[in-house]
């Protein structure tokens, strides 16, 4: 087994719904090794997206400990480290509508530094690998749902992250397109040695990963 790049211990999260306290996560433990792909399934509202947000450092857990490459993640340094350590793919793509596909991919590196020729070459290469060379100058509105998600995948891989977190990336796509996106995601992660945490409802997609976990009543098994 490779070294663990993500380690979560006892993550807990509670939401208030009116007067009720809902324990969404109750001491979640998770280790992800470099290059490993892990699927997390669960019913709607089971806290899959909440867990992913905690793992990405976008939200703070009420209890527990999170480490990226052996280093504890704190609120103070999460933003800066996130851009280098991980990439994210969302169900709703979240492409910036005013800029074309190539610029959307480059946006990930632009946040770290002014993009140079090497960055532009990598963005073009990633677009080629997701099969969108011809669509690089198209705006998101001119792309189909599947194409938009492929741009989002290319963007997530732009900074050569160690971990890719995908939150129901096929949720807005038809079955055929969804299958193609998952195949692409898995093959790119394999090629680049990027670990993948895939949140999905789709059993077939989950079965394509190295490990499958199920989140039920706030506990990950």
């Amino acid at each position: 087994m490779s070294e663990s790049i993500l380690s979560a211990r006892g993550l807990a999260k509670t939401y208030l719904s009116g007067d009720r306290r809902i324990e969404v996560l109750r001491g979640v433990d998770l280790d992800v090794a470099a290059g490993e792909s892990v699927a997390i399934r669960g019913e709607s509202g089971s806290g899959k997206s909440t867990l992913l947000n905690l793992l990405a450092g976008l939200d703070a857990a009420e209890a527990g400990r999170l480490e990226w490459t052996g280093m504890p993640v704190t609120t103070a340094d999460a933003t800066r480290r996130r851009a280098i350590f991980l990439g994210m793919v969302f169900q709703a793509f979240y492409l910036i509508p005013e800029i074309d596909a190539l610029a959307n991919v480059l946006m990930a590196s632009r946040i770290l530094r002014a993009p140079g020729a090497a960055d532009r070459a990598r963005a073009r290469d990633l677009l080629a690998r997701v099969g969108l060379t011809e669509r690089s100058t198209h705006l998101p509105a001119q792309l189909s749902g599947g194409e938009r998600q492929r741009v989002a995948v290319a963007r997530a891989l732009m900074n050569t992250p160690k971990l890719l977190l995908a939150d129901e990336p096929t949720g807005n796509l038809d079955e055929h397109t969804g299958d193609a996106v998952i195949e692409l995601l898995l093959s790119l992660c394999r090629e680049t040695g990027t670990a993948l945490v895939l949140v999905t409802h789709n059993i077939a997609h989950a079965e394509k990963t190295n490990r499958q976990l199920f989140l039920h009543e706030g506990v990950l098994r």
Binding site: L58, T79, R82, A83, A92, Y94, I96, I111
Partner: peptide, 13 residues
């Protein structure tokens, strides 16, 4: 709003 959230997810302060 969601793009602002995305920028945060990409590492923007």
């Amino acid at each position: 709003t969601r793009e602002i959230g995305l920028l945060g997810a990409l590492g923007a302060s």
